[in-house]
Design a protein around this nucleic acid. Structure first.
Lengths: 198, 198
DNA sequence: TGGACTAGAACGACCGGTCGGTTTTTGCAA
DNA sequence: TTGCAAAAACCGACCGGTCGTTCTAGTCCA
């Protein structure tokens, strides 16, 4: 009961890599098996359906995201430092070697926004959790006195998410070399106007 | 040479509708022909390849976008009113009956950001043109004295694009009922801090 | 009548998925 | 540690179906 888990893990790794470039729907059992030097049926046996594979990939991505972005931020001091850590974490995440095609959540979000089903449901949940994580970190920053008391933290989370989405757009599609610079400036601007006005 | 143009037009209309929900790659000649009550080969004869159809859909979308978003804004007074008109235009565009799955540029951008070829090239061009249109409108607002002289108009365009992308995310994926409210607040905030500081 | 337009059948390639049998790994007894 | 049977993992061939594309033949209209 050990070999199976190992291959399943390597399958999910490669599937995540593939899905980040061609999408969760563009993911194909055939080429996935080929790259893993596995037979298609041998690979398929690990998951009862393609949809189950997609869900597993998504769940694996969520676990990675929590481990690499959320958790490190939570180990930072409460308040603005933690919010900054979330931003840095996301920027690191988007460049991750694990996803050569960019953040899988962004890709899947657009792919499944009109495709009802369990994959969409899981995706929506993960995005709501993420926005909530940002908003909660901002709320703590308010409580710590770093951000102004009347800050709308939900609005803050949406604004930050917009900055991230534009970063994906700028760096992935337009291949704008200054994407990261522009993104960082936007983040700084958002943080500045969220602070106490003194 | 008239019948052909008419059917070609109706093909592009339905193709745009379909592509907005399932993507330009998910677009399928079979179901497209079926919905148009045409044979697959009859439809195919109008375009030499699927890629040519995708390019035609994209070009048609650009023409619609210019006619429905950019042109109306250009008929507004120079300066902030014109910038506002671009925002209102985009919000209208995203809800357009023509695209039940939301803005096709957003969908295609994510779909083709890692898929080299003429479709990607055309898409990049359209997005750069759009950002340029925003930046130029902002520059005019600076010249008119509506926006502060030291405003980075390129940054402004990116920030606005981020707001739009988040709106797509919020309304399409999360189906957040308050998406438009949040988006409008973000736009107002961006406009406010772009004005002269007096 | 000629040229634009369309239908229909067929193609090779690939898709997700199934099935029966073979190989490999594992848990356990000696 | 070794031997061995059961279980888990894997393979190759194959299924029905759909994809984009091609070709031929007919139809419609100017």
């Amino acid at each position: 009961m050990k070999k199976g888990e190992a291959t399943q893990k390597s399958i999910l790794e490669e599937a995540l890599r593939q899905a980040s470039t061609v999408g969760l729907e563009g993911l194909t059992l055939g080429v996935l098996a080929e790259r893993l030097e596995l037979s298609k049926s041998g690979l398929f046996a690990h998951f009862k359906s393609k949809e189950a594979l997609q869900l597993a990939v998504l769940q694996a991505a969520v676990e990675h995201f929590i481990a690499e972005v959320v958790a490190p931020a939570l180990s930072q001091p409460r308040g603005e430092p933690r919010v900054r850590a979330l931003c840095e974490g996301w920027l690191r995440w988007e460049k991750s070697r694990r996803m050569p095609g960019g953040c899988i959540f962004v890709n899947a979000a657009v792919e499944f926004d009109d495709r009802p089903g369990p994959v969409r449901d899981a995706l929506v949940q993960s995005q709501e959790d993420w926005l909530d994580t940002i908003a909660r970190a901002a709320q703590i920053a308010v409580a710590e006195g770093h951000f102004r008391p009347d800050l709308d933290t939900e609005q803050f989370a949406n604004d930050l998410q917009g900055i991230f989405l534009n970063h994906h757009h700028a760096s992935r599609l337009r291949r704008d070399a200054r994407a990261e610079l522009i993104t960082r400036r936007s983040v700084e601007s958002l943080l500045t106007r969220s602070r106490r006005t003194h």
